[in-house]
């Protein structure tokens, strides 16, 4: 009962503080603190409700339990992280995005190809590509190569479509200007069209960053060696060791956010000239 009151108390307090802060003029500090308080409040309510209602840890472990388990099994988590993220997701991400980028430049040279490939690519990007996972696991075996292949297939089309669209983004006037400078195809590509395409390319890279992690983890449900995040999640669910599952989820969430954040930071550095990046 005390824990329930605690949960409600924290809720009220967090809400009150946030309302006060939100009413104040917006600064960089409040922009960071307000969501932080919201998140801490959520975790505190979770802890309070789980303890207050005595929910079985088989259903929903308390955050403190998850944290304890996380600290206790860092070696397992690290092994899974290397297997899934470094070997599976990252290699697939680099391969998939790189090849999509090259294909996009190739496609862009031929108008006919572009007109044909863009609708098809858009169509494929909307399909449940993740369903290819069992087939690719069958082709490339259980180890990380098949996970990388799934990631390649998943990120290829979103990246392709975005890059092709980006390369078409420079206006006719700008291209005419390059022609008056007597710039050839490559000079125009490097000096004008690629820089102009950067916002689109980074949009594709961002979408691909979340897809890569999902692809690598889900592909492990269809068969994997005895390590990896997807493997650990599916077996630990079977053993009702939900605290370990949640620890893996924490890792996945942190990795996913960090991955996205890094891409966003690089974007800010590269496309500093774009209106969406200008902050007053």
């Amino acid at each position: 009962m005390i824990w329930l009151i605690f949960a409600f108390g924290v809720w009220g307090l967090g809400w009150w503080v946030n309302t006060r802060l939100a009413a104040a003029p917006r600064t960089r500090v409040t922009g960071l603190v307000v969501p932080l308080i919201f998140g801490i409040t959520l975790i505190a309510i979770w802890e309070g409700v789980v303890r207050g209602l005595e929910i079985s840890p088989v259903l929903l472990p308390a955050p403190s339990m998850i944290a304890a388990r996380f600290v206790a099994s860092t070696d397992i988590l690290w092994e899974d992280f290397v297997q899934t993220v470094i070997k599976g997701a990252l290699s697939g991400y680099v391969l998939g995005c790189g090849s999509a980028f090259l294909v996009a430049i190739l496609v862009d040279r031929y108008d006919f190809l572009r007109q044909g490939l863009l609708p098809v690519g858009n169509f494929v990007a909307a399909l449940p590509v993740i369903g290819m996972a069992p087939i690719l696991v069958m082709w490339f075996g259980f180890d990380w190569q098949s996970k990388a292949a799934v990631v390649v297939v998943m990120v290829f089309f979103p990246m392709l479509v975005n890059t092709v669209q980006g390369l078409a983004d420079s206006s006719a006037m700008q291209r005419d200007l390059m022609r008056t400078y007597a710039a050839g195809y490559w000079a125009t590509l490097l000096k004008l069209r690629l820089p102009a395409a950067m916002p689109f390319i980074f949009n594709g890279l961002k979408i691909a960053s979340t897809l890569a992690l999902i692809g690598a983890i889900v592909a492990e449900f269809f068969g994997s060696p005895i390590r990896g995040m997807g493997f650990r999640i599916s077996t630990s669910v079977g053993q009702l060791a939900l605290d370990l599952v949640w620890a893996e989820i924490v890792v996945a969430a942190v990795v996913g956010s960090a991955f996205y954040g890094i891409v966003a930071l690089v974007e800010r550095a590269v496309t500093f000239w774009h209106p969406s990046q200008r902050h007053s």
């Binding site: 409040t30 983890i217 669910v237 996945a252």
Partner: peptide
């Protein structure tokens, strides 16, 4: 208040590979 506290978490929620925890 909702804008400032919920919106960043809505975005963060999507970096979590939810499909991975679907079985759970």
């Amino acid at each position: 208040t909702m804008d400032m506290s919920v919106m960043p978490w809505v975005i963060a929620s999507q970096t979590i590979p939810i499909l991975a925890i679907a079985p759970m």
